[in-house]
Write a protein that binds this DNA or RNA. Structure first.
Lengths: 187, 187
DNA sequence: GACTGATTATACTAATCGGTATACTTATTA
DNA sequence: TAATAAGTATACCGATTAGTATAATCAGTC
């Protein structure tokens, strides 16, 4: 893949998160990326397609990073579940964290017929299903329910961190997650 | 207060939630409200001030509604805490619910020096402090921690409902809240 | 009936937006 | 050296944006 395409993608990702998607113009992106609009529109046919690509890459980066971490450092399935929020904390508090894409995108594109909104919803669901998969492997009875609850805590923590960086939200999200997971493992 | 001013305020509130704040132009608001830009700018000196007023009214509406419900239907302090998510569910699932303002506003105005972002953060904090007040009155030891956790669940549920109306998120948020509250009441 | 204040109607500005057209400059390669 | 492809530079388009100026219209009140 072209190095310029990636440069544009990364630049847009940062700008979207720090300034907002709708508030970031195409001219700003190309200026920051050190290229021109002609090149941007060669790789992305429209701003909407660029947004979709940014979302896809961001979500995939997060999912593979998380999955790699969990797979490398856990032996039994239940361990993955218990360490889940440790890595979520690591991700949310990392200095180059700029927010969870699909959370902000769904706020900026509330209309359900919007392609951006639809992709956001799909990614949110996909993340929940990943947690549900972990819960199922850990032999948890109501895996769907626990996954939904952990997903809520994750969204809440990400939202809190997005509002105010360095808040205690993640710490308490971890504690709450531990209570819910331990309770579910006993049944 | 002028009836026209309120009409503009309510119209803007609905449009902001359904179409997004930045995506809603002033012309659209006045057309939908059945008035003109001259009148709008007579009551609100700028679009930013209108946004701030919409946020203020929305937050106050929610806070007073919730507080009234809790005060009217609870006898002992701990009962308020236990019924909290019942009313949150009622609010989130009501047909004229259009999202929690400060959650979406903070996503559309991510810059910390933005007045809208700052107000959103303040309102989020204020809501958390309200829950903390309930927890303190119920003699809960780590009232701050519980309030933060319940606040996370609330944000997560609101965010989920905003992504996809009629999701099961609130049901499971209630269950999670009950577990956390019951656990905190025992200590 | 004349005055007053609130509201409307309409036209306008200056800036910004996403997107395109055209011409020029590189670097690679055959 | 000629040809091809990638990228740059720049100017432009039509639409939309927030906000303003001006004149007309309406209601009620003295």
């Amino acid at each position: 893949m072209s190095v310029l395409r990636e440069k544009i993608l990364n630049t847009a990702s940062v700008l979207f998160q720090t300034q907002g998607i709708n508030s970031t113009g195409v001219d700003t992106i190309v200026a920051e990326a050190g290229t021109t609009k002609m090149t941007l529109y060669k790789y992305f046919n429209s701003k909407e397609l660029l947004i979709l690509e940014v979302l896809k890459q961001g979500h995939q980066d997060f999912q593979t990073w998380l999955n790699d971490k969990l797979s490398a450092n856990s032996k039994v399935p239940s361990e993955k579940l218990q360490k889940l929020f440790d890595y979520i904390e690591e991700w949310l508090t990392s200095p180059d964290f700029h927010g969870i894409g699909f959370i902000k995108a769904s706020a900026e594109f509330p209309r359900e017929d919007s392609a951006v909104h639809q992709l956001s919803t799909r990614q949110s669901l996909q993340f929940r299903e990943y947690i549900q998969h972990l819960a199922t492997e850990a032999n948890i009875k109501d895996a769907e329910g626990l996954a939904l609850q952990l997903s809520l805590l994750f969204k809440g923590a990400a939202q809190a961190e997005q509002m105010q960086r360095g808040s205690d939200a993640i710490k308490y999200a971890k504690k709450a997650a531990k209570i819910l997971i331990d309770g579910a493992l006993k049944n």
